[in-house]
Design a protein around this nucleic acid. Structure first.
Lengths: 213, 213
DNA sequence: CTGTCTGCCTACCGACCAGTAGGTAGACAG
DNA sequence: CTGTCTACCTACTGGTCGGTAGGCAGACAG
């Protein structure tokens, strides 16, 4: 990595005292999000924590193992939050809005993770032990079925459900993954609370307009 | 790069005989799109062309220079195509549809380039000599003004024009940049002609629904 | 006090990187 | 035949990478 260290991205909250292991996970998330897998060296991460590389490798057996632990830990957090939104009562548009907002808020809380996911989506999951598409596909199919049922019932405007999901995926992720680019395109910081809520309301309104007759 | 070489992505058409220089540019585009700047070594590119690394460096002074030439060459192609769509006659929704389709078709013709652009958007343009956001911003502001005028005239549904543009950006780019991921999520190859035209029609219909009263 | 475990260190390894030095074979000009 | 230019080569440089070997200091148990 060329730039020394992002020190700490603004993701999530951090308790006053974290174990070295947790500090490594946090710094690794920031570095991998900032510079990608190949662009991040273990020295960068170790320096951000204030230890040497061999000490880091005392906690995580390899660079790959560290990367996968960061990725899969946050993936399961995301799944948990999504599942609780899906499990919540509600139907029709209300449920879509709930899931949309839950996804948005998770991404807003973990922008670095969105950038990691996006990098893997571009690469085809080169550095992952799991196949991201296979893991997400059941949820994708379930959502598509849900949309199709609501369209048939006349609650939603009929259209290609899978295309709609891909568009939603792009609308949600791109704002966070491309934040460094959007930073230069807009006059406000994309991750400021006011910009975030404007973005959230736009996404909800946009999908409402396209879905609800 | 771990995988030996994509040999040739399906981008654009290629004449029977290309100069070594052009072959290098083509192979570099494929490799940088596939594996990113840090993930691609000059050996990978040279091997794809069938020469050695020092011979490649005879044509391009450095890795950075090669990368920037690939990037800026396609950026100007994109600008040209966009400008001709913007300059074409038409107003209101027809013009939006024209620009949307022109953008989509350029991306469909150059999927590798979309992946390069997306990587730079995530990185914040670390490997570029130019500032991508600054270059694109005049066009972004022009488009926002156009939408706002049409909304005031009552031709478009009133909404946040800049948010709309960001959503359009995400809808167009994500389908191509994340093609390796979508490949595993869908049953059809995302870049097959039938899938492409389905995607194009969905995007056009989706924005029509959100914009036109 | 002694043995063991944890967390960190310095010093090193082989592999690979981008880039350079210097040479060669062929085309073409005079 | 000679000089020059282009396109390529092998061989090397300094530097960085991930990972390993081995040691050391402190905590804690018996």
């Amino acid at each position: 990595m060329s730039t020394p260290s992002p020190a700490s991205a603004t993701d999530a909250a951090e308790p006053a005292h974290r174990s070295t292991r947790e500090q490594i996970l946090g710094e690794a998330l920031a570095c991998f999000a900032q510079s990608g897998y190949e662009g991040t060296s273990l020295n960068d991460i170790a320096a951000g924590v204030g230890i040497r590389r061999p000490s880091l490798l005392h906690h995580f057996g390899s660079k790959e193992a560290l990367y996968q632990e960061v990725f899969e830990h946050l993936l399961s957090d995301w799944f948990e939050r999504l599942a609780s939104a899906i499990g919540a009562p509600g139907r029709g548009w209300d449920k879509v809005e709930l899931v949309l907002r839950a996804g948005f808020r998770f991404f807003a809380d973990n922008p670095s993770y969105v950038r990691m996911v996006r990098r893997e989506a571009i690469d085809g999951g080169q550095h992952l032990a799991i196949d991201l598409a296979s893991v997400l596909r059941p949820m994708f199919d379930l959502a598509a079925d849900y949309f199709e049922r609501e369209m048939e019932s006349g609650n939603f405007v009929p259209q290609d459900a899978r295309q709609l999901l891909i568009t939603g995926y792009g609308a949600l992720l791109s704002y966070f993954s491309d934040e460094p680019f959007l930073e230069g395109l807009l006059d406000v910081a994309p991750l400021s609370e006011s910009a975030l809520s404007a973005r959230e309301e736009h996404i909800v309104a946009f999908f409402h307009a396209a879905l609800v007759p």
